[in-house]
Design a binder for these strands. Structure first.
Lengths: 109, 109
DNA sequence: TGTATAGTTAGGTATATGCCTAACTATGCG
DNA sequence: CGCATAGTTAGGCATATACCTAACTATACA
């Protein structure tokens, strides 16, 4: 399997969890610190930071630590790559339906 | 968590596996039977059908059995829903960057 | 220097996942 | 009928995941 495909795997896997999808949603509107992100999740902090680790490992986010505050921010490229994969599938599917339509039209004559 | 969000979870989870993503890719260009789909995967059939089960459970595919052949086909709606989620995130992110650009421009004056 | 705050590390548990083999059922067909 | 084919069911195993608590380190700040 090529590398970009492996990245897409890990991205989809990361997004397949409600906590992590919510974090991505939050980061879409701007960077935030760990404790700020953790607010609103009924989860122990170590569990939460594990999710952040998953997101960072797959490249969807990055973080920088300044003092004792670690700030996370979104990296759009992996999200875009996954989106592209989906768009590609849809194109194929739509083309197929067009073909089917044409076929159905042709036998109607 | 609303229901549509739970569906998106399971869809992303399903797509986070290379075998299953390949199956979706295959089905994008038309329906196929189990054994046809299983070709090219170095995996025992029960393991493979388990993947099909995951895809079917999250709504990405459906199947019908005629005689002893079960044929799978793609259901585009869940894929589209997941795609929409991503597009939405990207929009937010892009708007944020626009805001940032405007801000940077404004302080430049 | 002492205390609060932000996050990390270590270690544990329950459940889910991805795979397997063996054995089964159901259909097609000569 | 008898045999091949298509898929299903049962059960097992190793690893990964998602959570936890307790204890730690590092920074801020009075």
């Amino acid at each position: 399997m090529p590398n970009y495909a492996r990245q897409i795997d890990t991205v989809f896997h990361a997004l397949g969890d409600p906590t992590r999808r919510a974090v991505v949603g939050r980061l879409s509107s701007g960077p935030a610190a760990v404790s700020e992100l953790a607010k609103g999740f009924a989860m122990a902090l170590p569990s939460f930071t594990q999710h952040l680790g998953v997101l960072e490992k797959c490249g969807l986010v990055r973080s920088e630590k300044s003092g004792r505050v670690r700030t996370y921010y979104l990296v759009p490229q992996p999200l875009k790559a996954a989106e592209n994969w989906m768009v590609e599938q849809r194109k194929l599917w739509e083309r197929r339906l067009d073909q089917l339509d044409n076929y159905l039209l042709s036998i109607k004559e």
